[in-house]
Lab assay of single mutants.
Amino acid sequence: GKMTGIVKWFNADKGFGFITPDDGSKDVFVHFSAIQNDGYKSLDEGQKVSFTIESGAKGPAAGNVTSL
């Protein structure tokens, strides 16, 4: 299901970062391709987001990332 969290950091040049889930679980990798907006796909440190957990090739990653 949907989770919420805070963006820990995001490197716009490399197109990835990490989200710290509100439930205290392990930080989740986020790739820019998972960001659900029409414009420039980037996130800001400290931004609140909702997301799902998808299993990627390198382990769990955030999917369906939407800013709240």
Results as ranks from 00 to 15, higher is better:
residue 55 S to L: 14
residue 43 L to I: 07
residue 66 T to R: 13
residue 66 T to I: 10
residue 50 S to F: 06
residue 28 V to A: 04
residue 58 K to Y: 08
residue 30 V to C: 11
residue 58 K to G: 09
residue 46 G to T: 03
residue 27 D to M: 03
residue 22 D to R: 04
residue 24 G to F: 04
residue 32 F to S: 12
residue 42 S to G: 10
residue 58 K to M: 07
residue 18 F to N: 02
residue 22 D to N: 08
residue 24 G to R: 08
residue 5 G to K: 00
residue 18 F to D: 03
residue 57 A to Q: 12
residue 15 G to Y: 02
residue 51 F to R: 00
residue 1 G to P: 06
residue 30 V to G: 01
residue 58 K to L: 07
residue 12 A to E: 12
residue 39 G to Q: 10
residue 36 Q to I: 13
residue 54 E to K: 15
residue 28 V to R: 03
residue 32 F to P: 04
residue 50 S to R: 09
residue 1 G to W: 06
residue 11 N to T: 03
residue 65 V to L: 04
residue 37 N to P: 09
residue 68 L to Q: 09
residue 46 G to A: 04
residue 18 F to K: 07
residue 61 A to W: 12
residue 63 G to H: 11
residue 52 T to H: 07
residue 34 A to G: 07
residue 55 S to H: 15
residue 18 F to G: 02
residue 54 E to H: 14
residue 12 A to C: 12
residue 27 D to A: 06
residue 34 A to F: 01
residue 3 M to N: 11
residue 3 M to H: 08
residue 32 F to W: 15
residue 63 G to N: 13
residue 22 D to F: 05
residue 28 V to W: 00
residue 23 D to C: 08
residue 38 D to Q: 12
residue 2 K to C: 08
residue 4 T to P: 02
residue 27 D to H: 04
residue 50 S to P: 01
residue 60 P to I: 11
residue 1 G to A: 13
residue 48 K to W: 09
residue 17 G to R: 00
residue 21 P to S: 03
residue 53 I to P: 07
residue 13 D to Q: 15
residue 13 D to R: 15
residue 50 S to M: 11
residue 36 Q to C: 11
residue 35 I to D: 04
residue 37 N to E: 15
residue 50 S to H: 08
residue 32 F to K: 15
residue 44 D to I: 11
residue 55 S to W: 14
residue 25 S to C: 09
residue 41 K to E: 09
residue 51 F to E: 01
residue 57 A to N: 11
residue 60 P to T: 09
residue 44 D to S: 15
residue 68 L to C: 10
residue 49 V to E: 01
residue 51 F to P: 00
residue 57 A to S: 13
residue 58 K to V: 07
residue 66 T to N: 09
residue 56 G to K: 12
residue 47 Q to S: 11
residue 43 L to D: 00
residue 35 I to L: 08
residue 67 S to A: 14
residue 40 Y to W: 14
residue 52 T to A: 08
residue 65 V to S: 01
residue 32 F to A: 13
residue 9 W to Q: 08
residue 22 D to C: 08
residue 40 Y to I: 11
residue 23 D to F: 06
residue 45 E to R: 15
residue 65 V to I: 04
residue 48 K to E: 14
